[in-house]
Design a protein around this nucleic acid. Structure first.
Lengths: 71, 71
DNA sequence: TAAAGATGTAAAATATCTTTTACATTTCGG
DNA sequence: CCGAAATGTAAAAGATATTTTACATCTTTA
């Protein structure tokens, strides 16, 4: 749907964080986190790096790019 | 300026590619490559992954996130 | 089971990224 | 040096990401 898969929800839960806590950590809205977790759209590159840092993984580990484009 | 440093120009030249060739490879305009190389703005996450793949590195190797925000 | 907390969703406004067109300047091979 | 290729830049339009407000639906847990 966005050409990207991510492990944010999984890693966030492993850290027992709510969407709101994660949002506050990276200074975006809770809706932004929710939208990204549910693949409504991809984060900006800067936000991807913030998320990866907070969740303790690399950007490449956090996101998997699905080539071939979407529908 | 964008909160991000990148090694695109360096790696592109190492592969003896022009901005236009790289642009064609990832199906964006030459101006987009030029703007990103010169830090006018950051690429989308999807484009960051495309660029990394074409240049043979990971996203984390291609971009360095400079925390602390901008000006 | 009632209240609180967490999550999903939506519309409108704003910000950011990308394209297109167009032209100017720099770099490089003949 | 001359021409061609590569690069820098800019403005307007279009696409995508993010915020704000607001409300509905789970899911805890007391």
């Amino acid at each position: 749907m966005t050409g990207m898969e991510n492990r944010i929800k999984e890693l966030r839960k492993a850290k027992k964080m709510s969407q709101e806590e994660l949002a506050n950590h990276c200074r975006v809205s809770r809706q932004t986190i929710n939208a990204i977790e549910n693949n409504k759209y991809d984060p900006s590159l800067a936000l991807a790096f913030e998320l990866a840092k907070i969740l303790g993984v690399t950007v490449d580990e956090l996101f998997k790019y699905k080539k071939g484009e979407n529908s």
